[in-house]
Amino acid sequence: MHLTAIVAHPDDAVIFCGGTLAKHADRGDDVTIVYMTRGEYGGFDTTEADIATTREAEADAGAETLGAEAEFLDFEDGRIRYSMENRLQLVNVLRKHRPDVVLTHFRDDMHPDHRTTSRLVSDAYYMCSLPLLETESDPWEPQNVYYFGKPTSSFEPETYIDIGDYQSTKEEAILEHESQVEWLKEHGGVDVEFDGLIEDVRAENRVLGRTRGVKFAEGFVPLHKNATEYLGSM
């Protein structure tokens, strides 16, 4: 199978679904992470271009640690907008990669880029199988979309993935985002739940795991409620 995660910023995939991505890659699935932006607002005392260069390199390294391929789109950090043009760009992304399952942000999130990405991906999913809608790639119909969320939102998981064997891989991938580990220490108050990034992510995964009797877990909300073998629902 092919699993594609579409995320707003370079560290979003490793933080919210890195264990699941690593688990699927390890079982031989094709895993791709599509980054909407290069996260050029996420830093101090330097230029947007410098931050973007650093964060792209970190994202490449994080994806490699998880066993995933990486692709970058050219949206601007903090300025992702909902439009038909952008929706069609995401339609073509889905058609190009032809994923069975798509992972993306939950609709209710503090960050405007996360909310807009969620809406764009959801609507692109709806449109990408339409035979009369022409893009560079042929129509494709993913089987489902799974949303991940932040603990500050109304997100309540319905699908849980046991990542006990992959928590350490996830943390290694997070540590590749060295600039963000430091940025979030200084950026508390907005992203306060992640101001101690590794410790807080580990705690969140441990809490989710305890609800299912495993050591660590990640949680998702599926768009469709139909049963599926994908994501290894517990």
Rank of each mutant, 00 (worst) to 15 (best):
V7S: 11
P10G: 08
A13I: 05
V14G: 01
G19P: 09
G19F: 13
T32V: 15
Y35R: 00
Y41G: 06
T47C: 04
I51T: 08
R55Y: 01
E58N: 07
A61W: 02
A63I: 10
G67T: 04
F72I: 02
L73G: 04
E76N: 08
D77P: 06
I80F: 06
S83Y: 00
E85H: 02
N86K: 11
Q89C: 06
N92E: 14
N92R: 03
N92S: 15
R98L: 10
L103R: 12
V121D: 12
V121Q: 08
Y126E: 14
C128D: 05
C128F: 09
P131E: 10
V145P: 07
Y147V: 09
G149E: 01
E156K: 11
P157M: 07
Y160G: 10
I163Q: 07
A173H: 06
I174G: 12
L175S: 10
E176T: 12
W183F: 15
L184A: 00
E186Q: 15
G188A: 14
D191C: 03
E193V: 03
G196V: 07
L197T: 10
V201R: 04
R202L: 14
R202S: 15
A203D: 13
E204K: 07
V214I: 14
F216D: 08
G219E: 09
N226F: 13
A227T: 07
A227W: 09
